[in-house]
């Protein structure tokens, strides 16, 4: 029998939930697709073929072609790159900001805590999508800018989470001991406190990726996200809307890709959260 280490318990619980495992596998597959896009896509994503525009799915073009005769399957495959990279970078930015502000707020308390918490309240009061749109209006809608803007508007959850974790850990004996030994604040926060509260942050990051993918696709769908000819699931859907009466395949397939991706990240995140929650651990483990 394996040792009852946290890692073992976590992994066994994670595997036990088949849906969670399925989510994890799909996420891995999506990574492979994104990584191998140049090798597995049947056409180049921006190969224009004016003789075959808006063709329904056929063996030659399994997901049909768009209004410029580009192969939709290839564009969906390449779109995976955009979606995943936006998801990761945006969430990375959000997590870094969230950890910084949350840790400072929880560890130092006092007026810094008041100011940061008030700032979070304010950020949460302005409808996020309004905020993102307003910022994007004034900058170039490049993929980097979109990542940054999504990251800058979605760190509040992580900050609150980290603050709560820090508050609960900073009075523990081992932290006080480190303090008594004269460890620097930065050291205490990162080496002693954060290391023990990474798990919930990680879960919320996985769920955050799902959210970022949705926001990016919504922006691209509205025409202010990733700009064509770069393929993104959202901007293919934008074409789908313009051709809604004649080309169903332009709407159905990229949306399905978004749905499956977001669903998988959500399943994975929820499964991880359950696996990490000791209250849900059964006796048999």
């Amino acid at each position: 029998m394996k040792a009852h280490s946290l890692k073992n318990v976590f992994w066994r619980r994670f595997k036990k939930n088949r849906l969670t495992l399925a989510g994890g596998i799909v996420v891995l597959l999506m990574f492979l697709v994104a990584l191998l896009a140049p090798f597995i896509s049947p056409y180049k994503p921006d190969d224009i073929d004016r003789k075959h525009i808006l063709e329904a799915p056929s063996p030659k073009h399994p997901l049909g072609t768009d209004d410029l005769g580009r192969d939709v399957l290839s564009r969906v495959i390449w779109g995976a790159r955009i979606s995943l990279s936006v998801g990761f970078v945006a969430v990375g930015i959000a997590v870094v900001i969230g950890i910084m502000l949350g840790a400072v707020s929880g560890y130092y308390g006092g007026w810094m805590d008041s100011i940061i918490m008030r700032f979070i309240d304010i950020m949460l009061s302005i409808p996020t999508f309004f905020l993102i749109l307003a910022v994007i209006a004034f900058i170039e809608p490049s993929i980097w800018n979109i990542m940054i803007v999504i990251g800058l508007t979605s760190w509040m959850g992580v900050a609150r989470l980290v603050r709560a974790e820090v508050l609960s850990l900073k009075e523990r004996e081992y932290v006080l001991a480190a303090k008594a030994l004269g460890a620097a604040d930065v050291n205490i926060i990162f080496r002693h406190i954060m290391i023990n509260s990474m798990a919930p942050v990680f879960v919320s990051a996985v769920l955050g990726i799902a959210g970022a993918v949705l926001i990016e696709s919504a922006l691209s769908f509205l025409g202010i996200g990733v700009q064509p000819p770069t393929p993104s699931w959202g901007n293919i859907l934008n074409l789908g809307k313009d051709n809604i009466e004649i080309a169903w395949w332009l709407s159905v397939f990229p949306g399905l890709a978004i749905l499956i991706t977001v669903l998988s990240y959500n399943l994975m995140g929820e499964g991880m959260r359950d696996a990490l929650d000791p209250r849900l651990w059964d006796v048999e483990i």
Binding site: A210, A218, L237, G240, I244, V252, L263, N266
Partner: peptide, 22 residues
Amino acid sequence: VFIGFAMPSFWFALLLMMFFGV
């Protein structure tokens, strides 16, 4: 519920527009 969470609203809108409208 899980599908509802993951469903992009604008895509769902397009699908329903296609089915009930078109």
